[in-house]
């Protein structure tokens, strides 16, 4: 039985008396709502953090007024503003596709949360092909972005969508290859088993395995995942100096908010994959720290990765399109192939 179903059965014993399909449906809906709540709260916090980080890096102080303490309520105010804004659909837009696109992008981002292992017992679905599943649902986001870019009937949106799609499709290859280097050693695609294989102290984490080979794979994964989620230095799809706002130029109000929410959820998902595959998931770095519960380690490690993403955003300039393709095809891809070969060799010897 799924660990999550067991978790709910222990939490709410009366679910056992219900017919199985009803109990499973209720558990599924509740889990999905929990994840949605997490995404919403995470995005509120991450947007505030991004503003503070960017401000401090530019020697400013950022939002300070709303809510009192360091402007903590700034994003809540912004969200309310977005909610009450007029919902504009351009006259020549393809109405159906225009309205569908944010839903698809956000669904793709939320679907990734289904296999994230928060602790040994709390994982919404411990799929046998978990890692592959997360890579596959990310391709829905590409379709959603292309849909939004085309339906807006705006050349900047279309250019942004095309750039975004080609970038995400290209960088899927180094992402998959870098993860394959670890999967080859662990012999499983299940997110839970990937973490369980790393138990021990910090030196047993995959990032220090086959030192320095998997460490390089981790760096390749991190760089490529930045491109996957369209973050700086790979944020050409929304380069405001050339494309206004990229694929979401025409979006306003709640639909824009959903694109934004999807983007921040994706930031968390790629950080959580890095945490699971390379940084030991919910495991503490040292044995004596194991009194701190697993979810805190998991979220803490993932948030550290999110912070590094923000840090890079305000440190590095944007790449050109040719540099983007050069980095992917001539640097990251050959290096990840070399790492797979070397790890294979290491294992044979």
């Amino acid at each position: 039985m799924e660990p999550l179903v067991q978790f709910f059965y222990i939490l709410l014993p009366f679910l056992r008396d219900w017919p199985e399909w009803l109990a499973l449906t209720v558990i599924g809906i509740v889990a999905a709502l929990l994840m949605f709540g997490f995404v919403a709260i995470f995005a509120l916090f991450a947007i505030w953090l991004e503003r503070k980080v960017s401000a401090h890096m530019q020697d400013r102080i950022g939002p300070m007024e709303v809510g009192g303490w360091h402007g903590w309520a700034q994003t809540i105010a912004d969200t309310i503003k977005l909610l009450v804004k007029e919902d504009i659909v351009p006259e020549n837009a393809d109405r159906i596709l225009f309205k569908l696109a944010p839903a698809i992008v956000f669904t793709a981002a939320l679907a990734g949360f289904a296999v994230l292992p928060w602790t040994q017992d709390f994982i919404p679905a411990d799929l046998n092909v978990g890692l592959l599943y997360i890579l596959s649902v990310s391709s829905f986001a590409v379709i959603g972005i292309l849909m939004g870019g085309w339906a807006s009937n705006n050349k900047w949106s279309l250019y942004g969508a095309m750039r975004s799609a080609s970038q995400m499709v290209s960088y899927e290859i180094p992402v998959a290859l870098a993860l394959l280097a670890v999967v080859m050693n662990a012999g499983t695609l299940s997110m839970r088993h990937l973490v369980m294989a790393q138990s021990g102290n910090i030196l047993d984490w995959n990032v220090f395995n086959f030192f320095p080979l998997t460490a390089v794979a981790f760096i390749i994964y991190f760089v490529a995942s930045l491109a996957e989620v369209n973050r700086t230095p790979f944020d050409l799809p929304e380069g405001e100096s050339e494309l206004v706002g990229g694929f979401h130029t025409e979006y306003s109000g709640m639909r824009f908010a959903f694109f934004f929410l999807g983007e921040y959820a994706n930031m968390y998902v790629v950080s959580a994959i890095a945490t699971t595959v390379f940084l030991g998931g919910w495991l503490p770095p040292f044995e004596f720290l194991s009194f701190i519960p697993g979810p805190i380690w998991f979220v803490g490690k993932a948030m550290t990765m999110v912070f590094i993403q923000m840090w890079l955003r305000w440190t590095l300039p944007r790449l050109r399109v040719d540099q983007l393709m050069y980095t992917c095809w001539k640097v990251l891809t050959p290096f990840s192939f070399a790492i797979i070969l070397l790890i294979g060799l290491w294992k044979v010897i």
């Binding site: 592959l132 890579l135 596959s136 649902v137 990310s138 391709s139 829905f140 590409v142 379709i143 292309l146 799609a165 499709v169 899927e172």
Partner: peptide
């Protein structure tokens, strides 16, 4: 695999 190949590759 169906999703990776068909949605992520062929459909795009």
């Amino acid at each position: 695999t169906q999703i990776v190949v068909y949605v992520g590759g062929i459909l795009i």
